[in-house]
Write a protein that binds this DNA or RNA. Sequence first.
RNA 1: GGCCCCGUAGCUCAGCUGGAUAGAGCAACUGCCUUCUAAGCAGUAGGUCGUACGUUCGAAUCGUACCGGGGUCGCCA
Length: 574
Amino acid sequence: MLFNDYLKNKLNNLICAEFKAHSIQEIPDESSFSIEIPSNKKFGDVSSNIAMIFSKKLNLTPRELAGKLCNQLNEDKFIERLEVVGPGFLNFFFKNYFWQNQLKEVVRNLKIYKYKIEKKRICLEFVSANPTGLMHIGHARGAVLGDTIASILEEVGHDVTREYYINDAGEQIKKLINTIIFHHKNLTNEKINDDKNLYPGTYLKEISDTVYKDNSREGLSNNIFEKKIIDLIINDIKKDLKEIKVDHNSFVSEKKISSKENVDKVLKRLKNKNLIYEGFQERPKSSNNQNWKKDKLLLFKSQKLGDDNDRALMKPNGDLTYFMSDIIYHQNKIDKNYDILLNIWGVDHSGYVKRLANALKELNVKKQYSFEVKLTSLVNLLEGKKIMKMSKRDGNYVTMREVVEKVGSDALRFMMISRNVDKKIDFDFKIIKSKTKENPVFYVQYAYARCMSLIETFKRTFDCPSKKIDINDADLSFLNFEEDKVLIIKLSNFFNIMIASAKSYEPHKIANYLYDLAKDFHAYWGLGKLDPSKKIISDNNYEISFSRISLVLVVSLIIKKGLGILKIDCPENM
RNA sequence: GGCCCCGUAGCUCAGCUGGAUAGAGCAACUGCCUUCUAAGCAGUAGGUCGUACGUUCGAAUCGUACCGGGGUCGCCA
């Protein structure tokens, strides 16, 4: 059993017994106390705050309870030493063979580890870039983040749908179609500028050419013409997503889901809740819509729920607002009985989250579900210290495609999740292309390659080129140095990182862990430089070499597993 | 102005959701290449965790207020 599970069980049982002895009915919450790896070695290999958590309930001081637990644990065959320290910490020092054995546990668990989670059905919506142009670097962040979160959630055992919501309705599509038609009719090569209310850029010119070349516009209904254009763009987006290994298994069309039937259904429910009315709104300050008229329209009583304003559901011309179709879309997900609706949106949608959450809550008072949104911050493209200008005005922004061509999928993916969502990312081409420690992708991959190289050297040295390194054949009792232990503890903590990452929807925890592990491993490797007796492969001692190479093997397995979840390659040599 | 996010070393960021002496990378300085991959390793230096109260055994972490920075407040999506 892995150390965390072992201690958790053990401590939990003891606490349960204490509760019983004190005639306390309730069952102690296993998740309320911690099993952690202290940053300071002095505080043990592992430490727990359990006594401080439960002492009050048991009417003891933390140190008293800790002492009691300590006495009962002292017989444990794996524990070398156990201390009660400070306010009541329990600090565990395990025997070496316990840690040596953990290495085998890690390998065993790599395939079969059962994460302790309650399995949920999760609908994860991400990317959902509008089909009006190619993806840019900001989209890439949402794409990689969403895809990676999905992989992590699946790894720990959830059931995840990766969904792309295609915004194929509304004003922007009209603008798109107008742009396509403009290009076709534009024989004099007139430029698009702001006041034309069209999308700038050469990309849509190409789309226009393709649409009109393949199939004459004649004979196509407006609907089919429109669909053809959107399909072309969506296919380009899909192609780009494939390049960075992002794959959705569900595409939902806004147009389709906003059927009259669905609209009526939602409106009826809102009406029953007395949340809609017909009224007027002031012209918004920021709107540059020249066609704006003060008109009667259907409104949602958002103010009642703490919003600044009531919000439009239907435009005067009968079209749905984005808000309305989004309610329908999310209602649809709730009706499909997902436990969790998780959305990855750009941070510019922040003001919109509460509004939608409120509407959904009102519509689903009795329903169990949770609605969560991760808002991704900006990405700056840098070349050294210089920020590359993203000129949106003329439509010539740096596309994700170009970035991938320059740095590859691995580097892009790693960078995009290396930071918490609410921090901006400086995507520096200079760093990302460098082969140094400063470039985290490289550093981790290099650690893996170094492991592979060591394993090869081991086989060469002991003349067993076809040998398969099996940790069960190794005598791990040679792994007695403090440095061995540090690495082993790190490795046996992998599954805890995974679950923490899944719980908080934060892939950067895994990225950071892998960087840390790589660092520890490189340090381990470096020991041989300072002290030849600590070389991983010592020419004259097969047994010691074999045990150390087993440790190296597990490092490589964990890196491979971790990078695999992040969908990043592990080159065998670099 | 309302709401959301951020403020940790000179710079870019972690900090395991309340734990013990706050950690990495870069930049600076010092060692280590007849090499188990120097594309690397070891070491030195660098901090009033924006400020002030509060919550408790204990706060970078939770709460409130303020200061500073960003985002957002459409009949765009």
